[in-house]
Simulated assay, not measured.
Amino acid sequence: MNLKPLGDRLVIKKIEAQEKTKSGIVLPNSAQEQPQISEILALGDGITSDDKKKDTIKVGDKVIASKFSGTEVKLDGEEYTIIKLNDVLAIVE
């Protein structure tokens, strides 16, 4: 991936939702919920150069972001979302 966010933005990729329920029922794509958890793939310079921000969040973290935030981008057949750091609601541990 050659996508480098600027300022206090970051690049995330949604983690695929489960295709089966706990009881083993396979769900079609239309019945699946959109994934809410994403993985951080890249951080902008505004985050990496700020001591407080860079200690809070890093590449590889799994996060929950606002549902309708960011800009969706397709690059090399993959879908990514570029969001502002303020749109991150929580880090999943």
Rank of each mutant, 00 (worst) to 15 (best):
L41A: 02
V73K: 14
A42K: 02
V26K: 15
E79A: 03
K53E: 01
I91A: 00
K52H: 10
T21K: 00
S66T: 15
I12T: 09
L89N: 10
E78D: 11
I15L: 12
I37S: 03
K62F: 02
G44H: 02
K67E: 11
S30Q: 08
I47W: 04
G7A: 09
A17G: 10
K52E: 10
K20V: 05
V59H: 03
I40S: 09
V88S: 03
F68V: 01
D50Q: 07
L89V: 11
L3Q: 07
S66P: 09
N86L: 13
L85M: 11
A65W: 04
V63H: 03
F68G: 14
L85A: 09
S38W: 08
Q18R: 07
I15Y: 02
Q18I: 04
V26T: 15
K22S: 14
N29M: 10
G46A: 02
K13Y: 07
G46C: 11
F68M: 15
N29G: 11
V63Y: 04
L3V: 05
V63A: 03
L89Q: 12
V88W: 04
K74V: 11
A17V: 12
T56D: 03
Q18K: 08
E19H: 13
S38L: 00
L3T: 04
Q36P: 00
V92G: 11
N2F: 13
S23T: 10
S69M: 00
T81S: 14
E72M: 14
D87H: 11
P28T: 03
I47Q: 07
K58M: 14
V11W: 07
I25R: 15
V11D: 03
Q32I: 10
K67V: 08
I47P: 09
V88R: 05
F68L: 14
V73P: 02
L3K: 02
G70E: 05
